[in-house]
Protein backbone atom coordinates (compact mmCIF):
# COMPACT_ATOMS: atom_id res chain seq x y z
CA UNK A 1 0.00 0.00 0.00
CA UNK A 2 1.89 3.00 -1.23
CA UNK A 3 -0.06 6.03 -0.06
CA UNK A 4 1.23 9.51 0.66
CA UNK A 5 -1.11 10.49 3.51
CA UNK A 6 -4.26 9.48 5.34
CA UNK A 7 -6.22 11.27 2.62
CA UNK A 8 -5.23 8.63 0.02
CA UNK A 9 -6.00 5.66 2.28
CA UNK A 10 -9.21 3.83 1.33
CA UNK A 11 -12.00 3.50 3.90
CA UNK A 12 -11.24 -0.09 4.75
CA UNK A 13 -8.30 -2.49 4.81
CA UNK A 14 -8.60 -3.41 1.15
CA UNK A 15 -5.53 -3.97 -0.99
CA UNK A 16 -5.26 -5.05 -4.57
CA UNK A 17 -3.78 -8.49 -5.06
CA UNK A 18 -0.89 -7.03 -7.04
CA UNK A 19 0.62 -5.92 -3.75
CA UNK A 20 1.33 -9.53 -2.83
CA UNK A 21 2.95 -10.01 -6.23
CA UNK A 22 5.13 -6.94 -5.71
CA UNK A 23 6.31 -8.18 -2.34
CA UNK A 24 8.91 -10.79 -3.38
CA UNK A 25 9.06 -13.05 -0.34
CA UNK A 26 11.76 -15.16 -2.00
CA UNK A 27 14.20 -12.63 -0.55
CA UNK A 28 13.48 -13.99 2.95
CA UNK A 29 14.93 -17.44 2.09
CA UNK A 30 18.13 -18.75 3.64
CA UNK A 31 17.73 -22.38 2.49
CA UNK A 32 16.98 -23.11 -1.18
CA UNK A 33 15.14 -26.24 -2.39
CA UNK A 34 16.93 -27.91 -5.31
CA UNK A 35 15.13 -30.52 -7.42
CA UNK A 36 16.83 -33.57 -8.90
CA UNK A 37 14.54 -34.05 -11.87
CA UNK A 38 15.84 -37.60 -12.56
CA UNK A 39 14.36 -38.78 -9.24
CA UNK A 40 11.00 -36.92 -9.63
CA UNK A 41 8.03 -39.20 -10.34
CA UNK A 42 5.59 -36.30 -10.87
CA UNK A 43 3.37 -37.22 -7.92
CA UNK A 44 2.92 -33.46 -7.21
CA UNK A 45 2.84 -33.99 -3.46
CA UNK A 46 5.23 -31.04 -3.10
CA UNK A 47 2.89 -28.90 -5.19
CA UNK A 48 0.00 -29.75 -2.88
CA UNK A 49 1.96 -29.05 0.29
CA UNK A 50 3.76 -25.83 -0.63
CA UNK A 51 2.21 -23.17 1.67
CA UNK A 52 3.29 -20.33 -0.59
CA UNK A 53 2.05 -21.74 -3.92
CA UNK A 54 5.68 -21.46 -5.05
CA UNK A 55 5.82 -24.73 -6.98
CA UNK A 56 4.67 -24.57 -10.57
CA UNK A 57 3.63 -27.45 -12.81
CA UNK A 58 5.10 -26.83 -16.26
CA UNK A 59 3.24 -27.65 -19.51
CA UNK A 60 5.41 -30.73 -20.00
CA UNK A 61 4.37 -32.09 -16.57
CA UNK A 62 7.61 -31.31 -14.79
CA UNK A 63 7.64 -29.18 -11.67
CA UNK A 64 9.68 -26.06 -10.96
CA UNK A 65 10.25 -23.92 -7.86
CA UNK A 66 9.33 -20.25 -8.09
CA UNK A 67 12.31 -18.73 -6.31
CA UNK A 68 10.76 -15.24 -6.35
CA UNK A 69 8.26 -16.40 -3.72
CA UNK A 70 9.72 -19.60 -2.17
CA UNK A 71 10.64 -18.78 1.44
CA UNK A 72 12.73 -21.93 1.80
CA UNK A 73 10.60 -23.62 4.47
CA UNK A 74 11.62 -27.09 3.28
CA UNK A 75 8.19 -28.69 3.47
CA UNK A 76 8.49 -29.88 -0.16
CA UNK A 77 11.81 -31.60 0.60
CA UNK A 78 10.33 -33.20 3.69
CA UNK A 79 7.23 -34.49 1.89
CA UNK A 80 8.91 -35.76 -1.29
CA UNK A 81 8.58 -39.60 -1.24
CA UNK A 82 11.61 -40.01 -3.54
CA UNK A 83 13.91 -37.54 -1.72
CA UNK A 84 14.22 -35.68 -5.02
CA UNK A 85 14.41 -32.24 -3.32
CA UNK A 86 17.36 -31.21 -1.18
CA UNK A 87 17.75 -28.03 0.85
CA UNK A 88 20.93 -26.07 0.07
CA UNK A 89 22.25 -23.09 2.06
CA UNK A 90 21.82 -19.76 0.27
CA UNK A 91 25.22 -18.08 -0.03
Amino acid sequence: MAFKSVKDVPLGPYCHLESTLINKTGEWRNMRPVLDRSKCIRCYICWKFCPDVAIKILPDGNIEHDYEFCKGCGICANECPKKAITMVREE
Binding site: V6, V9, G12, C15, L17
Partner: peptide, 29 residues
Amino acid sequence: SAYKLDFDNPVSIGSLSMPHQWYMELRYK
Protein backbone atom coordinates in the same frame (compact mmCIF):
# COMPACT_ATOMS: atom_id res chain seq x y z
CA SER B 1 -20.81 -1.26 -1.64
CA ALA B 2 -17.80 0.76 -2.71
CA TYR B 3 -15.47 -2.16 -2.06
CA LYS B 4 -17.12 -5.45 -2.70
CA LEU B 5 -15.57 -8.79 -3.45
CA ASP B 6 -15.47 -9.10 -7.20
CA PHE B 7 -13.91 -11.80 -9.39
CA ASP B 8 -12.95 -9.28 -12.07
CA ASN B 9 -11.22 -6.93 -9.68
CA PRO B 10 -9.79 -9.06 -6.88
CA VAL B 11 -8.73 -7.46 -3.61
CA SER B 12 -7.53 -8.88 -0.35
CA ILE B 13 -9.31 -7.62 2.76
CA GLY B 14 -8.01 -7.37 6.28
CA SER B 15 -4.44 -8.47 5.69
CA LEU B 16 -1.49 -7.27 7.79
CA SER B 17 -0.83 -3.58 8.32
CA MET B 18 2.37 -2.74 10.16
CA PRO B 19 2.88 0.05 12.70
CA HIS B 20 4.79 2.10 10.11
CA GLN B 21 2.16 1.39 7.46
CA TRP B 22 -1.52 2.37 7.52
CA TYR B 23 -3.25 0.75 10.53
CA MET B 24 -3.36 4.01 12.46
CA GLU B 25 -4.68 5.87 9.43
CA LEU B 26 -7.43 3.25 8.92
CA ARG B 27 -8.49 3.70 12.55
CA TYR B 28 -8.51 7.46 12.05
CA LYS B 29 -10.86 6.88 9.10
